[in-house]
Amino acid sequence: MTGILDSVNQRTQLVGQNRLELLTFRLNRRQRYGINVFKVKEVLQCPQLTAMPNLHPLIKGVAHIRGQTISVIDMSLATGGRPITDLTNCFIIISEFNRSVQGFLVSSVERIINMNWESILPPPQGAGRSNYLTAVTEIDGELVEILDVEKILDEISPVNTNISGTVLEDLVENGPAVRRVLVADDSTVARKQVQRAIEAIGCECVLVKDGKEAIMKLREMAEQGSIYEQLSLIISDIEMPEMDGYTLTAEIRNDPKLKDLHVILHTSLSGVFNQAMVERVGANAFIPKFNPDELGRAVKGAMPDVPATSA
């Protein structure tokens, strides 16, 4: 598995084409799961884990990898299954989410699969609020679940969504004339985090679950009148089922009624390729998740660039 991500730099060409690559894995159960390769730093056989006092119950232990101490999360236990007990043949997926690095303990790692985001679908209705899914897809006739890792991480170490006092005071006093922001994110937890930060500065949020729903909502609003009189800006995740944030941005720029909307890409993805992709698709800014002060300042900074009327 050491070479599974050797060609990750070559994979950046998939971004912006509504494509992704999934690394598939299994837990104790037969169910297959997937994670975006761009969130994976390394895959390795489970090293010796060190138990430490007062660790969260979902953390199996810590691993010392390349001079870094990394918390290792039992992904089976975190998603409501039995804990992984036999570590002999298990793997750790080292991943970077929301400006932090952590290890995901899994029973086995399979392969990388090139896919189109249109094949990645929202969880079925009736899955319930307690599920840990952001999306599902089908590979080789088998259902593959894409986990809401942000929800798992938030349960272990909740993110502070409060804008600090001095920043909040400035933002409220100098807020936008049109106080409505469209937020697109497939993670329930992430949508709520952004919503709390945005509503704290006096803005209303329009919440959608993916890029396809976002573009449909925007076009519906544009049919009712100038979009710029209804909306201040868009805050969009990048990884979303059916249509990713890059493709959403490109669709906005290609639509005469939407093309001048201010778009902030707000994502747990990291990497130097992001800035190049932001410029290629025409997004105005890229912000790694999740810093409420930084998000609030970005919202304020967007306002002078948003036209009052549409030509």
Rank of each mutant, 00 (worst) to 15 (best):
F25I: 01
E239I: 06
T24A: 02
H56F: 04
K257R: 08
P53Q: 06
P176M: 09
G141F: 03
C205E: 01
V159A: 08
P307Y: 13
I235S: 05
R297T: 10
E294A: 10
A276F: 15
M303F: 10
I227V: 01
Q17M: 09
R196H: 14
I65D: 04
N254D: 11
P256M: 01
P53W: 04
R196K: 05
V43L: 02
N160Q: 07
D255W: 00
P123I: 00
P124W: 07
G271E: 05
L265K: 05
R280W: 09
V278W: 08
E42A: 08
R19F: 08
H56G: 02
I113L: 07
D185G: 03
G225W: 03
I156Q: 05
P53R: 08
R26P: 11
N114S: 14
G211S: 02
E118H: 14
R280G: 04
D6W: 10
A135R: 03
I65S: 06
Q275H: 15
Q48D: 10
K209A: 06
D305Q: 12
V208M: 01
H266I: 04
V106R: 06
V62Q: 14
M240Q: 01
R66T: 12
F38Q: 00
P123E: 06
L207T: 02
L171S: 11
E169T: 15
I264T: 01
A184I: 04
Y246K: 00
N254L: 12
M240L: 03
R111I: 10
M221C: 04
Q125C: 14
S100R: 11
L23V: 13
N174I: 14
I94D: 01
D237G: 02
M75G: 08
V37S: 11
T2D: 11
K192F: 14
E142T: 13
N89D: 05
A311T: 15
G128A: 00
I65V: 13
A302T: 00
V208A: 08
E155T: 15
A197L: 13
L5F: 14
T137G: 02
T12N: 09
W117L: 14
G61N: 03
V278F: 12
K192N: 07
A285T: 13
E145C: 10
Q68F: 00
T188Q: 14
V306S: 06
T267H: 05
S108Q: 10
M303T: 15
F91T: 03
D305P: 12
Y246F: 14
S270F: 13
P304E: 03
A214C: 00
L77E: 12
K257P: 12
E21S: 09
I112F: 13
N114E: 14
S157A: 14
D293I: 01
V62R: 07
I84L: 09
M277W: 09
Q193L: 10
K60H: 13
I92Y: 04
I65K: 03
C205A: 03
V72N: 10
D140C: 12
H266P: 11
F91N: 10
R19T: 07
Y132E: 11
A184S: 00
E279Y: 15
